[in-house]
Design a protein around this nucleic acid. Structure first.
Length: 797
DNA sequence: GAACTTGCTGAATTG
DNA sequence: CAGCAAGTTC
């Protein structure tokens, strides 16, 4: 079967053929990573005679898993296989393991456990905060859930978290108590949150030799995709699974690590060779995806990061067209521009797929509107997914109860939906009773319906009604197919009737969504046939990125969601300081580097055409704010950019010599000059000559200042002060008023200054005079800011 | 007990 | 600006 390998280059072939022992594939963007993985699986089966069910491939999203499955099937051709390789996400792999063996953990969980998504977790956290008597203003449920999740991901349980709380830190002490109660409640509800899926699976492997042996025997060849995004739990999981055999192949690219904030540990990939001393390393450095120009832009940006493995991506592709740049007056104008350009491109080539990539989901709305107005069909990833719609969640809650009636979150959600006369008072009483007896809400329902417990006859009969509905569903779940139970959950509960009675358009569309849910279940029955249990598990584990449709002409999504995808035409929008890079990242170097990797990911999605845009004004929180171009624009070689803006733009400004020097100066300040020198199209930028020229022009004083600045960039120099607690995404138009220290005229270009928010900076430019004098100041790490001298509160540094 | 109104606060990225 | 929670009214 030589034709399997014939489509691959030499490195790729090596990566496929090195089947035995640990292997690290460092796969640069667009280097044919997925092809290598899929061919490798096919090769293992066809050439090495490995039984398919002995192969495990792990991905992060269902979409990636599904694509991989399809491609393997295609590669193997018509061959009938005795079994199939398991291609799964980390989370569904864990669910599989736990559904089989969770009882062996002896932590009180049974195999019919429920999975809580983030929304469910927050609800539980909220109830814990309330019941502990904390103020949910001071202890925001969302934040608290985030803190708990973060702790769990770093391997802490409630007790070890509590032990680490400093004596005086009341807030964290409160979180620790919430954490403890939260964990108890999950056990009581027989529920696991997303983090638990990994935690319990790892614990199971650690604790039980027999389980470990079973999986080591089963999975003889393991592949892990996007290895740079694995966290310590995922690492531990892989570690246990490869305990006996070391046939583990991990594929990743540390330049595309963008989930550090979620606990991804980049050292997993950086130290792979230490973890597996026998490891072989193969680098895939030829990019097949993008034009030379796009690759140059990406490369120039990522080179500003200090923390990276050395790897040079190259391509045999043509230079292609320049990166198109557009500065819009406001966010609406930016959206109009994008819509117009998409139309233009698609008129020339109707098959051209486009993506609009933004930093935050909130940015999507304007693009949706503009595209709709332009009559362009689009697909949106993220935001409200199908399974997040209230009506779908309601029905899913009924189904969850059918499988695990002790799930109190699900119970509370639907006990009075549709309304059946169970108001706040009754539920509070029920809740109190459950707490008194130390039982689940479902058991409390049972007690009240048999003993009365002093509840009003009306309440008792309503509860009885609810009870019989759930019992009916429980019975059905045991013998009927998923779609049958889904239908029952919509009809027998009175849910559909209540919607019909509303007789509104809104209700009509909800009914349609529920019909969709039924369709999904019917499909599931036909394809997987795993029953309601598996259907609900799958529904709980769908992710935003799973919504991506490969054939959609236009896709709107975050840059995060775009990882792993490619498009001939890409728009990176909202390239503004504070938005991208995000203001929350500005305080820490490591976070800034992650933002930069995100920029790298976004740029390298583009195959042929790349547009970068930003707006001068944007509404944030309903407030009009002025914004500056992103420093990432500044980090692209300006020669590669073509300015499509109307009138003067930041780019035209940057291209005149003084601004170019400003760029150099900013780099000098960050001590970054020596490594950055590089040639683009025969022209040099960042040349030592022009920096020298710059200093000659500015005179001796500046050279001295620059030298001082360079010193302050040393590691032992005092760190710049942290930003204020609430940094707005952009600087307020008109400037923040504060004490005016200046007597005017002090801050000529070249002066080093100190700003209350941004720390040290260098004045690049001065416009106007007197009270209206405006300064352009470059702050290392914050980019350039335009400040009104009078209000800026600047001091000489 | 349910529908409506006001007022407040908060959104970075995700399985 | 928008979504949600508490308060207000029927």
């Amino acid at each position: 079967m030589n034709d399997l390998l014939s489509t691959l280059n030499e490195r790729q072939r090596e990566a496929v053929a090195a089947t035995e022992g640990p292997l690290l594939i460092l796969a640069g963007a667009g280097s044919g990573k997925t092809r290598v993985i899929t061919v490798r699986i096919a090769y293992l089966i066809a050439e090495r005679g490995v039984a398919p069910h002995n192969i495990l491939a792990v991905t992060f999203t269902n979409k990636a898993a599904q694509e991989m499955r399809e491609r393997v099937t295609k590669l193997i051709g018509g061959q009938k296989l005795s079994s199939a390789p398991l291609v799964s996400t980390f989370h569904s792999l864990c669910v599989r393991m736990l559904r089989r063996d969770i009882e062996k953990l002896e932590e009180g969980y049974t195999r019919s456990f429920t999975i809580y998504d983030q929304d469910d977790s927050v609800r539980v956290v909220k109830s814990c905060i309330k019941d502990l008597g904390y103020d949910d203003q001071r202890l925001a449920p969302r934040q608290t859930q985030g803190a708990i999740s973060h702790a769990k991901n770093s391997g802490l349980d409630a007790d070890s978290y509590a032990a680490r709380v400093e004596a005086h830190d009341e807030k964290r002490a409160a979180i620790a108590r919430v954490f403890k109660l939260y964990e108890e409640r999950l056990v009581n509800n027989n529920a696991l949150d997303f983090d638990d899926l990994l935690i319990k699976a790892v614990r199971l492997l650690r604790k039980r030799e027999d389980v470990r042996a079973y999986y080591n025997e089963r999975f003889r060849y393991i592949l892990v995709d996007e290895y740079q995004d694995t966290n310590s739990l995922q690492f531990a999981l892989i570690h246990f699974l490869t305990e006996r055999q070391q046939n583990v192949c991990v594929v990743g690219d540390e330049s595309q690590s963008i989930y550090r904030w979620r606990g991804a540990d980049i050292s997993n990939i950086l130290n792979f060779e230490q973890h597996y001393p026998e490891a072989r390393v193969i680098k895939l450095e030829q990019n097949y995806r993008s034009t030379q120009t796009i690759l140059d832009a990406a490369d120039a940006v990522i080179k500003h990061n200090t923390e990276r493995k050395d790897k040079t991506l190259w391509t045999a592709n043509p230079a292609g067209s320049p990166v198109r740049y557009y500065q819009a007056a406001d966010a609406e104008g930016e959206a109009r521009f994008v819509a117009a350009k998409i139309e233009e491109h698609r008129r020339a080539d109707p098959t051209l797929r486009a993506a609009v990539l933004y930093r935050t989901n909130a940015q999507s709305r304007l693009f949706e509107e503009a595209l709709r107005r332009a009559g362009i069909a689009y697909n949106i990833v993220g935001g409200f997914s199908f399974y997040e719609r209230a009506e779908v969640r309601d029905i899913v809650s009924y189904l969850k109860l059918a499988l695990n009636p002790h799930d109190s979150v699900a119970l509370l959600r639907v006990v009075n939906t549709p309304t059946r006369g169970l108001g706040k008072q009754t539920l509070d009483d029920l809740y109190a009773r459950a707490k008194d007896y130390g039982v689940s809400l479902w058991e409390a329902v049972g007690i009240v319906t048999t003993q009365g417990e002093g509840f009003s006859p009306r309440a008792v009969s309503a509860l009885k009604k609810f009870q019989s509905i759930i019992e009916g569903l429980v019975a059905r779940a045991q013998k009927e197919s998923a779609s049958e139970v889904v239908k029952a959950a919509i009809l027998d509960t009175g849910y559909a009737d209540a919607l019909k009675a509303e007789n509104s358009e809104e209700a009509e569309s909800r009914l349609e969504n529920l019909q969709e849910l039924v369709n999904a279940a019917v499909d599931y029955d036909a394809e997987e046939g795993g029953g309601l249990r598996d259907f609900i598990d799958a529904a709980a584990l769908v992710s935003d990125t799973d919504q991506y449709q490969m054939d959609a002409p236009v896709t709107l999504m975050t840059m995060h969601s775009a990882k792993g995808l490619e498009f001939p035409l890409v728009f990176i929008v909202g390239m503004e300081d504070g938005l991208f890079p995000h203001s929350r990242a500005a305080a820490e170097q490591a976070e800034m580097e992650e933002e930069r990797r995100l920029a790298y990911v976004a740029i390298t999605r583009a195959e042929r055409f790349l547009y970068v845009t930003h707006a001068m004004r944007r509404r944030v929180y309903g407030e009009e704010l002025a914004s500056e171009p992103s420093q990432f624009l500044n980090e692209m070689p300006l020669e590669l950019l073509e300015d499509l803006s109307r009138g003067a733009s930041w780019l035209s400004f940057a291209r005149n010599s003084s601004a170019t020097e400003a760029r150099h100066t900013a780099r000098v300040l960050r001590g970054e000059t020596s490594k950055q020198e590089r040639r683009y199209g025969g022209k040099t930028y960042d040349s030592v000559d022009s920096i020298a020229e710059f200093f000659r022009q500015r005179g001796d004083q500046i050279s001295r200042n620059a030298a001082a600045a360079k010193q302050s960039a040393q590691p032992d120099a005092p760190r710049q002060q942290p930003p204020p607690a609430r940094t707005k995404a952009t600087t307020r138009a008109g400037g923040a008023a504060s004490s005016s220290t200046s007597s005017g005229g002090d801050f000529v270009p070249g002066t080093h200054v100190k700003h209350p928010k941004y720390g040290r900076g260098l004045v690049l430019r001065r416009e106007g005079a007197g009270d209206s004098a405006k300064l352009t100041v470059s702050f290392p790490g914050f980019g350039q800011k335009k400040l009104v001298e009078k209000y800026a509160g600047l001091e000489k540094a």
